[in-house]
Design a binder for these strands. Structure first.
Lengths: 235, 235
DNA sequence: CTGAAAAACTTGTATATACAACTAAGATCC
DNA sequence: GGATCTTAGTTGTATATACAAGTTTTTCAG
């Protein structure tokens, strides 16, 4: 591991363990340089990158400080719903409804850069928290980029996690909408009466272009798309 | 302006003008260093920061390239609704329904770090695109941080813009929900029939703590909360 | 004691240099 | 022709140094 990365790791451990509480001062560039026997510029890089990640804030002439801990989580991460459910103390389960190859609908073709009716992979999954359905995931996947998609076991690994491994994310596009669910969606989400639902349309890209188009639908009452957005302190 | 910033400006102009199209190669660190008579490390910094902003991508041993233009806009910016409407070619207008001091409700007190029934400022505004109501904004503001809030003319300047000037943002927290609008909201948004609405709850912070709590409600059919999230290419 | 000046310390910018790691293209050998 | 080696170019990491700019503390004159 590069030296500046080692310093970052060290500082992150201090912060996460609570040894360096919020708003406390962290070692200066020169102090870190001496402690780790590196040049000031290398120590500076560690401080700089942690600042860009919203973990520290710095003021010229004063010093570097630990930012508020709640700023750690970020909308920028695309969260893995399985991790999210488990970290809230519930049991995660997925039910696979469909996993096939389809002729590509026009909208999907446009989104993924394919031709109409060209083969495209399609999966349909319900994500549960304990016995409660949290989200209906309908996903189209570009076969050119992920040829083995239909051979995976999505009870064991979420499509998002699998895709991240096969075609590392370079970019993601999101649209959030409030929609009125159709009958099928109500049925799968066990909604006795229709209620407003959140629909997150997510298109992901890898180096070679669009990888997948996913429609994630959740009842507004059961799921919140939250997080924190961090801004650098103005200098 | 610092030298690295001048180089960034130059490159941004080239990209925005179309002189450097998407995925075209940009000058290398050494070429930029020579053109601008700076050291390689300074040229490198310009390239590096543009990469972090998602404007370029770089590959070791190969070069630096212009990223897809659509990656420019980002969810990270808190958008000014007035700018957004105007940039889409419509006329922006605001109607101020209320601007008063209220005894603080419990939820608001918790969110802003005030005591229950302590005075808090409250504003209620409808944002229009031409004659179409786009968003109902209900906002509570911490009087300790923004004592002159109730004396502003919010037909002329949006609360968000004013607050940004008075108490620069250090942090913002967002929650997106799908809700069923109440009668008053329907009336103000000119919804003849109720329809699912997006509600964005936004809490903003400045250096000295929470500044405001805003509820932004928009009909799902009229407004999309969109944008792109950029990820650095893994190294 | 007060106020101004100086010193010490911090982060910010910039340079020159060196070597490592990686890629692509060309040269060479068989 | 084809495989391998070399070379040139590019980005990535690291160092030592210098000065600028901002803040806080100390010193010292009055």
């Amino acid at each position: 591991m590069a030296k500046f990365a080692e310093i970052k790791e060290f500082m992150l451990r201090q912060i996460e363990s609570g040894a360096w509480p919020e708003h406390s001062r962290v070692p200066s560039e020169n102090e870190l340089a001496e402690q780790f026997s590196v040049s000031r510029m290398t120590a500076r890089r560690a401080l700089q990158e942690l600042t860009e990640q919203g973990i520290l804030y710095r003021t010229q002439g004063v010093g570097s400080f630990v930012a508020a801990l709640k700023s750690q989580s970020s909308l920028l991460e695309i969260r893995n719903i399985a991790d999210e459910v488990q970290s809230s103390g519930h049991a995660y389960r997925a039910k696979l409804l469909q996993l096939t190859e389809l002729p590509c609908p026009t909208i999907v073709a446009t989104a993924l850069g394919l031709k109409r009716n060209e083969p495209v992979f399609f999966s349909l999954i319900v994500h549960y928290s304990d016995a409660l359905p949290l989200q209906l995931e309908a996903r189209y996947v570009n076969p050119k980029q992920v040829p083995l998609y239909t051979q995976q076991d999505f009870q064991e690994i979420t499509p998002h996690l699998y895709l991240s491994q096969i075609a590392p994310l370079t970019e993601a596009e999101h649209i959030v909408e409030a929609i009125w669910p159709d009958d099928f969606t109500c049925q799968q989400l066990l909604l006795k009466k229709p209620e407003p639902c959140l629909r997150l349309t997510r298109r992901t890209f890898s180096r070679d272009g669009a990888v997948s188009l996913a429609y994630l639908t959740s009842p507004g009452s059961r799921y919140r798309l939250g997080g924190h957005l961090n801004f650098a302190l103005p200098h």
